[in-house]
Design a protein around this nucleic acid. Structure first.
Lengths: 162, 162
DNA sequence: CTCAGTGCAAAGGATTTGCATGCCG
DNA sequence: CGGCATGCAAATCCTTTGCACTGAG
């Protein structure tokens, strides 16, 4: 839960200095809670994900995590997903995209380019989000469904592919 | 493209009699427009999808399309998707789910069970849907993104898996 | 020391594709 | 008849897994 107290909402850059150090502390704790270690590889993966403002694919992650084996990347991500630190996005037929879990960043949605597959984040007005949440909850329960989260993707052409 | 002028929105059941006959006419036309044929296999696939009220997987489709080869089912679905008659849903790691395109049915969203993978349809209030649509459009364009459609999925536990 | 983590290579599994044949128009 | 459609089997390709070794506590 711990809504990260990070001063800035991880605008884009970062991933190095100390501003996000508490992020790593939080993650280390969650992993430890499951008897897992926050190794250099895992931290590197997290740093790569934290340094960008959009979900990344395995190839993109490996590109920045010098020397990390592909299988290790997949395994690390699986563990991180297991402790709720990372979220996986499946969008299309290509590679899956990975991002830090929303409770480590903030609730947002995705713009998925139907041409190049690129995924970008975006948010909607809080008020609308609340109304949406309430409506979804009601509609789901009406069918005996217990809602846990919602995912809102907008498909279309990104600025580069228009 | 071509906002179909189909009169009714095909409620749910059906798939046999004549009430949905114009659905097949529409589909046949779209296929023909691309030099493709509306064969028995393809019609069968469409009938299976039209006869249910939720997206189906390839195994589920094959179960009802007696004798159809798996590769043909995939190929038929690919062609049908190509002419905008069928839509593919990727939700998780398992099989993809397929459903008739929204302009042949009606705009709706999905409840995806995180345990058994089952996908069910649901809709939200028209007013909220309109507000949502406007907000998404604005947010997308703000990033130079040309929105084409939106997909709203709610993850959670279905009635059987609670 | 002990056990989780890692790399490498092989296995898995949903989906795609090559090829010869069947069938609609 | 000509070309799309279909089956079957083999190939793809992202992702997972087996195994032996390395490393952190």
């Amino acid at each position: 839960m711990s809504r990260s107290t990070s001063t800035h909402s991880h605008s884009g850059r970062a991933g190095d200095g100390a501003p996000t150090e508490d992020l790593h502390v939080t993650i280390a704790q969650r992993l430890r809670g499951d008897g897992l270690r926050y190794t250099g590889s895992r931290r590197k993966v997290v740093e790569v994900l934290a340094a960008t403002d959009r979900p990344l694919t395995i190839p993109e992650i490996l590109e920045q995590a010098d020397g990390l084996a592909q299988s290790s990347a997949y395994r690390n991500l699986t563990e991180l997903i297991g402790v709720g630190v990372v979220h996986r996005i499946v969008s299309g037929d290509e590679f899956s995209h990975f991002e830090l879990a929303e409770d480590l960043t903030s609730h947002h949605h995705h713009l998925v380019c139907t041409r190049c597959g690129r995924v970008t984040d975006f948010t909607v007005d809080d008020e609308l989000e609340a109304a949406l949440d309430a409506a979804l909850d009601a509609a789901a329960r009406r069918q005996g469904f217990e809602p846990e989260h919602h995912r809102l993707d907008v498909g279309g052409r990104c600025a580069d592919c228009r």
